[in-house]
């Protein structure tokens, strides 16, 4: 066997081992989380190796009911948190897209003084430490009475997702043939009409990808929520709700159920739009 043949075989085998390894490390924690959200912790303590639940442990959805039930009925009030998270994430998506599409079009297509500076400035902002912005915002919002409100959270998420949106959409807008827009102008559309009737429909896949990203960022966010709304339980988003379950007094089964509740919508959305997302990610480079 020559060296070349040996390497062919060696790396050929190694490749499959690596594929199995990466699939396993990506998938196993989620399966484990799902299983443990049903498995009573006493059973697990008896034999940690038997982590999968039995059928009748699954059928009742006991832990999920307890997590979702309002506090007044002895639960953890997750229904409210789901509602808050949805309000915050959807509002952020709508606001970011309305402001971001116009801005991205401007940077991609319109000649104006300072266009380059704005592009570069936005990217720089995107690289700055979130904690540093959070401290003065905390002071500012406290003084303006915007702390302890979902509005405050939404506008902070708007500001932190705008640069990504601008960056990702700009590239896509530039790839749309300019002749299409010119033809529409000749046919009598105004400039705003062109954006509404030509650019937006043509960029629909990119816009969908950006919308999903912004949704994920707002849905998953933890630091700002912790700083701004911790003191008002009725305003908590899901991340604060799940964080509260991480305590000595709460069984880990509940913690895992909460984790499943916050992860499930994201995973479903991700699978629904995986192709857009992977393309969008490499086009823009998304902060993590």
């Amino acid at each position: 066997m020559t060296r070349a043949q040996f390497e062919e075989r060696f790396f050929g085998t190694l490749k499959w081992i690596s594929i199995v390894f990466f699939t396993a490390i990506a998938l196993f924690p989620l399966l484990y989380m799902l299983a443990l959200s049903f498995k009573p912790i006493q059973d697990l303590l008896l034999d940690p190796g038997k982590w999968w639940p039995t059928l009748d442990q699954i059928s009742g959805f006991e832990t999920y009911r307890a997590v979702i039930r309002p506090v007044s009925e002895g639960g953890f009030g997750f229904l409210t948190f789901i509602r808050n998270s949805s309000i915050v994430a959807i509002s952020t998506v709508v606001l970011t897209l309305s402001v971001g599409i116009l801005a991205a079009y401007s940077v991609a297509r319109v000649n104006f003084f300072g266009r380059q500076a704005v592009s570069v400035g936005m990217i720089l902002v995107y690289l700055f430490p979130v904690v540093i912005v959070a401290i003065p915002l905390f002071v500012m919002f406290s003084r303006m009475g915007l702390r302890d409100s979902l509005y405050g959270l939404i506008i902070v998420y708007l500001a932190s997702t705008l640069p990504v949106t601008l960056f990702m959409l700009r590239g896509y807008f530039q790839s749309i043939p300019v002749e299409l827009e010119e033809a529409a102008r000749v046919d009598g559309l105004s400039r705003l009409g062109v954006i509404r009737k030509i650019t937006i429909p043509l960029a629909a896949p990119a816009i969908a990808a950006v919308a999903l990203y912004v949704f994920m960022i707002a849905w998953n966010e933890f630091l700002y929520a912790l700083l701004f709304i911790l003191e008002k339980r009725e305003l908590w988003t899901l991340s604060l709700g799940v964080n509260q379950l991480n305590s000595q007094e709460v069984p880990k089964t509940m913690l895992m159920a909460g984790s499943v509740i916050i992860s499930l919508p994201i995973i479903v959305l991700f699978f629904a739009a995986e192709r857009f997302l992977t393309e969008g990610l490499t086009a823009g480079g998304v902060k993590g």
């Binding site: 801005a103 401007s106 940077v107 319109v110 000649n111 003065p136």
Partner: peptide
């Protein structure tokens, strides 16, 4: 007029980032 149009479109984004990121920094 082109320039004015461009600035008008980007103004909301610049304002948001200025007030919520640059000013806090």
């Amino acid at each position: 007029s082109e320039s004015r149009f461009g600035v008008a479109l980007i103004l909301p984004a610049v304002l948001v980032v200025a007030v919520l990121v640059v000013f806090p920094l």
